[in-house]
Simulated assay, not measured.
Amino acid sequence: MSKLTVENLSKQYGEVTALEEVSFEIEDEFVVLLGESGAGKSTLLRCVNGLTEPTEGSISLDGEEISGSQTAVGMIFQQHNLVDGVSAYLNALTGSLSRVSMLRSMLQWQATEDKVRALESLETVGLLEESHQKVSQMSGGQQQRVGIARALVQDPRCLLADEPVASLDPSSAETVMTYLRKAAKEHDVTALVSLHQVNVAAHFGDRFIGLRDGQKLFDVERGELTPELIDDLYGSVETVSLAEQASTPENGSREEVVGDIEQVIEA
């Protein structure tokens, strides 16, 4: 299992401070980033992925500094970023692009090892039987699972996910998070996932890092995440709003959802 180290990470966009001296280490954990929109979660993930250059600080994976050309970090996006006209298998196979030329990729001349890895990754997310189905014919949850498989084909040492279930209904969100956690565990990958659904985060996370206004507000283990910390992070109005958003005929009333959050936090 790889160790991700973030030290004194800061990012400025002109006069706007997106991140300010954020530090943490992750190893052999499924860690959830919590915070309001604009708290710095996406900026942090983009810095870890090498897509955004920090203003100050450093990010390393197993002691090696991360750069924009790195391939050791796999990324799962909120909007899937799949090729609609082709199958789940071919989309998963694009995770091997860093290892083959564009010509070989267009002709599907990937190595047998990569083709096997694509099928194994689809099996990990429960989509092996749908491997030849076009992703345009799949549900949003299935498409996101293809995105997970694609990231696994990259053979990363660290797996990032930026609001992977934000656009999904509660049932699909739970399914995607179940497979995402399974993928991280089975492939021995350190995972850092940003979420805004507190109840989903509390159910799946091993550890929780709270960001507010670009600063780290807390870094706690599963048993240490309390309703008071959530109130400090979001405010009582926001916490109620999240519970109301989670309330559906299938999930129960707002009071039941709040109770469920508290039960998970206390477990």
Rank of each mutant, 00 (worst) to 15 (best):
Q142S: 02
Q154P: 06
G210T: 13
V200E: 07
L217N: 02
R212S: 14
L34I: 09
L159H: 02
D231I: 05
L61W: 03
E65N: 10
E266P: 00
D169Q: 06
L119P: 00
M138S: 01
G259I: 02
A267Q: 14
A151W: 01
C47V: 15
V73L: 07
R222I: 02
V237Q: 14
D169I: 01
D213W: 03
S121L: 06
R181P: 04
G205L: 05
L107C: 11
S60K: 15
G141W: 10
G214A: 06
K3D: 01
R157Q: 14
N8S: 15
G68K: 13
T226W: 05
A267D: 13
D62C: 05
L44H: 11
D155T: 09
E163M: 08
A243S: 14
V237K: 15
E174A: 10
E7I: 08
V116C: 03
S10V: 06
M102Q: 12
A39W: 03
E228P: 02
F77R: 10
K3W: 00
V6H: 10
D231G: 05
V165Q: 04
S87E: 08
S172G: 00
E163W: 06
E15D: 13
V135A: 02
E129F: 06
D206F: 09
D231N: 12
T5S: 15
L128S: 13
S10A: 12
H203V: 03
L192W: 08
D232P: 01
T124V: 13
L19I: 09
V73T: 07
G141L: 03
L229I: 07
S67E: 14
S236V: 12
H203N: 08
L217F: 08
L44I: 06
Q70Y: 04
S2E: 08
L152C: 04
V240D: 14
V264Y: 10
V86M: 13
R145V: 01
K185G: 00
L9E: 06
Q197A: 10
K11T: 11
L229K: 14
V257N: 05
I59H: 11
L122F: 12
E262H: 14
Q78Y: 09
D213L: 12
E56H: 14
L192Q: 03
R145F: 03
V31P: 01
V176L: 04
L128W: 07
M1Y: 06
A111T: 14
D213C: 04
L9A: 09
A201T: 10
L97Q: 11
S139L: 05
D28L: 00
M102S: 11
D162S: 07
G95Y: 07
S139Q: 09
Q110W: 06
L4G: 03
F30L: 05
R181E: 08
H132P: 00
L180E: 01
E221H: 15
H80L: 05
A111P: 03
V193P: 05
V135N: 05
G210A: 12
S69R: 15
S37Q: 08
A183P: 07
V220G: 03
R145M: 09
V220H: 11
N91G: 08
R181G: 02
E64I: 12
S2Q: 04
S87I: 05
K41N: 10
G223L: 09
I265M: 15
D231R: 15
S105R: 04
I66T: 11
V22P: 08
R99E: 13
Q215H: 12
L217Q: 13
V125I: 13
R145S: 04
L152T: 00
L180K: 03
A201H: 09
N91W: 09
